[in-house]
Design a binder for these strands. Structure first.
Length: 493
RNA sequence: GGGCCAUUAGCUCAGCUGGCAGAGCACCUGACUUUUAAUCAGGGUGUCCCAGGUUCGAAUCCUGGAUGGCUCACCA
């Protein structure tokens, strides 16, 4: 960073002085491999068996209370923290003097006997200790911790040191994703990896990031979805596949949007979107059960029951419920447009029935859908990769799963008719030419794959970050992404 | 992109209608062998986000900018 320009203030200088003093006394402040045999939490949990026994622990000192010829400190490790007690008459003059050069934040390795203090706190009575790493910067204050959100995101390492709940969120995140993987593997799905850099970024309606390959001298796009490659694998006969991975979309940033985020997409040959509903509700319910031991989550003070089955409702029914406008009684584009105008929406002339229905859904319904629900019957215009309903070709066999007003799953019975797919792409190209740079691009190779024949299939995508927000009760996506996208601090230097 | 709000010590924050830059923790010096927000005595360590402007005088008022938060727009 700007280390060199940075004036070393008194706090930094004091630590560097101690660093030099340690070296002058022949102690290397940045130590070597160290083997601990216990975590702090293990010792506290198993005090009865460990009392009087010698343990070795390693961690960061987070507080020091010095009493002259003895001192207390707390040592924090991956699983918690534990008090240590060091006495002049236990460790000898030389070691005790070295302890004067310890700062809050330093990593040390400690060996000693387990005992309880008068007040009953499990403590390690230090027999020997060793420097593992000197900390040259002061940690945030002990009661208020680090609150400045900008600093928390920019220096997540500090946030993780001092804010226990933040550490827990990211441990939960990891467990949620590994549990998802275990479940999918158990259900017979094959985890695959498809390209992140692509010459055509398809599978979603979004703007991509662009980069350049020097040797090939071509534009490459970062993927906006994993969909089209995974469906190629269905053509190839892999039958049940999924990919958990990073998606990149060149869009605005908000509490529910980060330019890079993690999705899982799941595809199954010979299945349909109803199978995908079952996978969605079972996956999320099972994760809650296995990771948190519960059928319901508490999100922002509201209890949300995740137990399957979740209700299924059509978009037309939901729009009628929340807006009073009944699209089943609206026969054509023009009547739909009039209905929108009456509702006070400002729409471009010539929008089709389906897009207007979808606008109504977005405007009146999405944020009302607090309990888990599957919304079905999406219009064909906004679903270029989904199979049409035979009973009503204006709609598709697609659903989105909503919880707490957020879209967390999107799935359909996959369009496997290459001729229909080509027409849908051509429609999208029309939108693109009309200035919609988020419309889908033509992907000839994908059509080519479909022309070889893709079985009927169900496909499902889940936004993992939003799912984690729900499960960990966080209202900002930046609180479930370790290093969220931020503008650089100093501009143009 | 629009609106609103924030930015003061390492951290958490106070600083009124313009008049010498503050507190707690942390840190430094000293005392203290079961403390735990340890205690006691002493010490303020600062580009008041940046650049202009108004004024005898600006952390404070004005203009522009930066970063962040919320929100609207945007966003399957």
């Amino acid at each position: 960073m700007e280390q060199e320009q940075e004036q070393l203030n008194e706090l930094l200088l004091a630590r560097r002085r101690k660093l030099e003093e340690l070296r002058a006394r022949g102690v290397e402040p940045f130590g070597q491999k160290f083997e601990a045999d216990h975590y702090s939490a293990d010792i506290i949990e198993n005090y009865d068996t460990l009392e009087g026994r010698e343990v070795t622990i390693a961690g960061r000192l987070i507080s020091i209370r010095s009493h002259g010829k003895a001192a207390f400190a707390h040592l924090q490790d991956y699983r918690g923290k534990i008090q240590i007690y060091i006495r002049l008459d236990q460790v000898g003059q030389e070691k005790y003097e070295l302890f004067d050069l310890v700062d809050i934040g330093d990593f040390v390795g400690v060996t000693g006997e387990v005992f309880k203090t008068r007040k009953g706190e499990v403590t390690v009575n230090v027999k020997d200790y060793t420097y593992l790493a000197k900390s040259l910067r002061p940690l945030p204050e002990k009661w208020h911790g680090l609150k400045d959100v900008e600093l928390r995101y920019r220096q997540r390492y500090v946030d993780l040191i001092v804010n226990e709940e933040v550490r827990q969120t990211f441990i939960d995140r990891s467990r949620i994703i590994s549990t998802m993987r275990e479940l999918l593997n158990e259900w017979g799905f094959l985890e695959v990896e498809t390209p992140i850099m692509q010459t055509i970024a398809g599978g979603a309606l979004a703007r991509p990031f662009v980069t350049h390959h020097n040797a090939l001298d071509i534009k490459l796009y970062l993927r906006i979805a994993t969909e089209l490659h995974l469906k190629r694998l269905l053509v190839g006969g892999l039958d049940k596949v999924y990919e958990i991975g990073r998606i990149f979309r060149n869009e605005g940033i908000s509490t529910i949007h980060n330019p890079e985020f993690t999705s899982v997409e799941i595809y199954q040959n010979y299945a349909d979107y109803e199978d995908m509903m079952e996978i969605t509700e079972n996956l999320i319910h099972q994760i809650a059960k296995k990771v948190f031991g519960t059928d319901s989550i508490e999100f922002q003070g509201k209890v949300i029951d995740l137990t399957p089955p979740w209700p299924r409702e059509t978009m037309i029914d939901i729009v009628r419920k929340y807006s009073g406008v009944d699209f089943s009684q609206i026969p054509d584009d023009e009547t739909a447009f009039q209905a929108a105008r009456k509702a006070g929406m400002e729409l471009d002339k010539g929008l089709p029935w389906g897009e207007i229905l979808y606008k109504f859904f977005e405007m009146y319904c999405e944020e009302q859908l607090l309990e888990p629900i599957f919304v079905t019957g999406f219009p064909v215009e906004v679903s270029p990769l989904a199979k049409k309903m035979e009973s009503d070709p204006r709609l598709t066999l697609r659903f989105e799963g909503f919880i707490a007003g957020w879209e967390i799953a999107n799935a359909f019975t996959e369009l496997n008719d290459p001729i229909d797919q080509r027409e849908r792409f051509e429609q999208q190209l029309g939108k693109r030419e009309a200035g919609d740079d988020e419309a889908h691009v033509m992907d000839e190779d994908f059509i080519n794959a479909l022309e070889y024949g893709m079985p009927p299939a169900g496909g499902l995508g889940i936004g993992i970050d939003r799912m984690i927000m729900l499960l960990t009760d966080n209202i900002s996506i930046r609180d479930v992404i370790l290093f969220p996208t931020l503008k650089p601090r100093s501009h143009g230097e």
